[in-house]
Simulated scan of single mutants.
Amino acid sequence: MKLPLHERERVIIKTREHSRVLRQPVGAFLVLTALCTFSLGYLSRDDLSDWLASNANVWMIVAVVLWAALVLIWSVIPWARWLRSRIVLTTERIMFRPTYNDGKLQSVGLFTVRDLVAHSKAKNAMTRAGTLDIVLNQGYVRLSHVPSVQYFRSLAMEAMANLRSSQSMAHTETTNSEGMGA
Rank of each mutant, 00 (worst) to 15 (best):
M1W: 11
P4I: 03
H6G: 12
I13L: 04
H18Q: 12
H18A: 15
V21G: 14
L30N: 04
T37I: 14
T37N: 11
F38V: 14
S39T: 15
G41E: 07
R45M: 13
D46N: 11
L48A: 00
L52C: 06
N55R: 08
N55H: 07
V58M: 00
V58I: 08
V58G: 05
M60N: 02
A63K: 01
A69T: 06
A69F: 02
L72T: 07
W74N: 05
S75T: 15
I77Q: 06
W82M: 10
R84L: 09
R84S: 09
I87T: 13
R97S: 15
Q106N: 15
Q106V: 11
S107D: 06
V113E: 13
V117C: 10
H119Q: 07
S120L: 11
S120P: 08
S120E: 13
K123I: 00
N124W: 08
A125D: 00
M126H: 01
D133A: 05
V141N: 02
H145K: 15
V146W: 15
V146F: 10
P147C: 09
S148G: 05
R153G: 03
S154R: 13
A156Q: 04
A159I: 02
L163H: 01
S168T: 05
S168D: 03
T174F: 00
T174S: 01
S177H: 02
S177M: 01
E178H: 08
G179Y: 09
G181P: 06
